[in-house]
Nucleic acid binder design. Sequence first.
DNA 1: AGAAGTGATGTCAGAAGCTGTCATAACTTC
DNA 2: GAAGTTATGACAGCTTCTGACATCACTTCT
Lengths: 191, 191
Amino acid sequence: MPRWPEDSRRRLVDAALVLFDKDGYTATTVDDIAARAGVTARTFFRYFPDKDEVLFADDDELLPLMLDTIATSTGPVSAGVLMDQVLVGLAQTIEPARVSLRRRQQIIDSELSLTGRELAKQARWQKEIAAALVSRGFEATASAVLSSIGFALFRSQMLEWLEAEDGVSLADRVKRALPKVRTVLDESTNR
Amino acid sequence: MPRWPEDSRRRLVDAALVLFDKDGYTATTVDDIAARAGVTARTFFRYFPDKDEVLFADDDELLPLMLDTIATSTGPVSAGVLMDQVLVGLAQTIEPARVSLRRRQQIIDSELSLTGRELAKQARWQKEIAAALVSRGFEATASAVLSSIGFALFRSQMLEWLEAEDGVSLADRVKRALPKVRTVLDESTNR
DNA sequence: AGAAGTGATGTCAGAAGCTGTCATAACTTC
DNA sequence: GAAGTTATGACAGCTTCTGACATCACTTCT
């Protein structure tokens, strides 16, 4: 429970989203964001290491959740089932934030560098999840492959979910994703 | 066959790789690179839109190759087979450059922003390949999923290939990757 | 209540990335 | 050899990001 803190941070995030949405990412300077939040640019960089991160800072809370899913899972399960649990848990966590996530994704898609940042973050998750699977005794390459395609699938499902209006939850989409791969693969070897 | 051109560009790339390797990415300034190549920083930015791109500029030649694979494929094949051909072709193309690619990957891994750039480029490929599959008459979601996991797999295999010393070619690794997914998946539903 | 401490913020200075503009020199072409 | 093209240099300026130090608000201890 700090004195003024967290308040500035929240205002900076809000200001950034509004301005990026209104004027575009490159067109809005850090000074603009800081001014709208009532602080200095220097303060902005105290909360966020760079201009991009104001869009992704909240994501950092998600990795511990995912790692926790793996660490606290009980009983003998396959790596695939664990990965499934991780992704469904992730889906359920972000599910309520759909509208703001969609706005954010529009901004991200408008700038290639932001897409890169998003994917880099996901790549870090991917590595950590794979490592967590390994530390639970699963084989290294299988863990890497699983984590790799798991996140690739999650992302494609998330993008669909953000766009779609059919009301199908992200968790449901994710649950259907892995079997869907199997279908595609069965077709793929069908010379 | 330009007058002086291409020569400066080549020298800039070489200088950048040497300096990034020697002093680290952030520590070497664009001025350093330009100086070593015998030109001005302004000239650097005429060849490359930003400092990152000097590491990735050559990759742009690869996309046309991949799209060509899809466009010129004859006979009725499944999307999966096509995707397989694309990735194996890509693997064979970059195969000879292994040593320089490994040095490059070390630099990329040292900086999160570079990883982002690498993945952003791959994301663009992914979208274009998916679009090419669609234009060959394949279903949209299947194309997207296939392209998505295809590149995820390719990347994980490439990273293994760069590290490994077992002499197994990248193309072979890629060929084994898709079946490997199937194995992992079979295990994954095996509650 | 007053002193001392802590943490958030402001101010200032500066490096590095990147862009626009114009000049110039090298080289080609007619 | 005149005209046109092109790579490059030379500034000048903006934006992102960092380090150093000052200051102000609020807390805690006495």
